[in-house]
Design a protein around this nucleic acid. Structure first.
Length: 356
DNA sequence: GACTCGTGGAC
DNA sequence: TGTCCAAGAGT
């Protein structure tokens, strides 16, 4: 148990933070104001999954779209897989969408449409890890839970001036977070910590002068709050090369469904060959023919590699009955296909080429 | 523990 | 332009 900060100072932290939260809580579509009953567990769960490794600004319109189209967990459980994946397109980390559907169906089928009201029960559901289980338990069910995301890690690392670098420091930071987590107003406290980290206690230029916890904060006292949390060095991001195949016939383009698992798993996509260290040319083209590889190219950066894609184009004769695996999608409605961003970028490039 | 897994905004 | 970063989970 951490002991660096005197107990009498530590016990004041929740009240100091909640007073600040009562005045400065952000208004968000998945949140009730401080003191107002929480939104439904369904909405809390939906928002928490969408917000995993994702900014509030990016998740915002997806949350509105999902809750409008699927207002309840039963409605989402009944959704068509392809429709749901298409609705998620652009938000990234597509395993979240697959797990979200599985979770909705489990809750509907095995739990009578009600989310478990405790951390252990939530943690057993697909797509719900330690953070999300704690967050839902606290926010939706007002249970005391130690809610630790990247914001909380940063706030706590600064409060206690933790020198140990992430990710090794995770268990230590969890212990510090536990030591300041109150039993009352569990949901407000968790959200207050995250709001503080997202607004004042930011990674680069923390606004310590405005911070409700600046007095007990060890990092501020040391004069270098931005130094915390320390992080282990990252490894370089490799570059890979590939080819996108744009096959066109009678104002339709060929789309495929990517394999269930792995990168962009389960998503509708343009056909591609392998992504590798050297350019693969026309390897694994969906059909043999007079492919044109022009200057058209798309660059895209994923978390663990950067990708340069050449675009090969082929026009098939109208009525020519090529048997290709996939769907012929109307080109003027390609925006409704639910393509991940990398393919949406490629399509935009081709259409710019074509029309202008 | 170490990898994999997206995207867009800030600086 | 490159780097960092975000309400992490699954393997």
């Amino acid at each position: 148990m951490p002991v660096d900060m005197p107990l009498e100072e530590r016990v004041e932290i929740p009240a100091m933070l909640l007073r600040w939260y009562d005045r400065h809580a952000r208004a968000l579509p998945w949140r009730s104001p401080p003191g107002v009953p929480a939104p439904s567990p369904y909405r809390v769960w939906l928002s928490e999954v969408m917000l995993q490794q994702t900014t509030v600004a990016a998740a915002w319109r997806y949350f509105e779209a999902f809750t409008t189209r699927w207002p309840t967990v039963e409605a989402l459980a009944a959704a068509d897989d392809a429709d749901m994946m298409a609705a998620w397109a652009g938000l990234g980390y597509y395993a979240r969408a697959r797990n979200m559907l599985a979770c909705a169906r489990t809750v509907t089928r095995d739990h009578g449409g009600r989310f478990p009201d405790n951390e252990a029960g939530l943690r057993a559901l697909p797509g719900i890890g330690a953070y999300t289980a704690a967050a839902i338990a606290a926010i939706a069910f007002d249970r005391r839970a130690v809610v630790v995301d990247a914001n909380v890690e940063r706030v706590v690392a600064r409060l206690f001036a933790v020198e140990e670098p992430l990710p090794a420091a995770k268990s230590l930071l969890h212990g510090f977070a536990d030591s300041i987590t109150p039993s009352a107003r569990a949901g407000d406290f968790a959200q207050a910590m995250m709001d503080l980290g997202a607004t004042l206690c930011s990674p680069r230029n923390p606004a310590c002068a405005l911070c409700p916890l600046n007095e007990p904060c060890a990092a501020r006292r040391a004069g270098t709050p931005e130094r915390f949390p320390a992080k282990a060095a990252k490894k370089a991001r490799p570059r890979r090369f590939g080819t996108i195949f744009w096959v066109e016939q009678d104002e339709h383009v060929l789309l495929v469904r990517r394999e269930k698992k792995g990168l962009l798993g389960g998503m509708r996509a343009l056909p591609t060959g392998p992504w590798q260290a050297e350019t693969p040319g026309l390897a694994e083209a969906p059909v043999t023919g007079e492919w044109g590889i022009g200057a058209t190219e798309v660059s895209h950066v994923f978390t663990h590699f950067a990708l340069d894609l050449a675009i090969a184009r082929l026009q098939l004769e109208k009525g020519c009955a090529e048997k290709l695996v996939g769907e012929w999608w109307p080109i003027d409605r390609l925006d409704t296909a639910g393509l991940p961003t990398v393919f949406a970028k490629a399509a935009r490039k081709v259409l710019e080429d074509r029309n202008g």
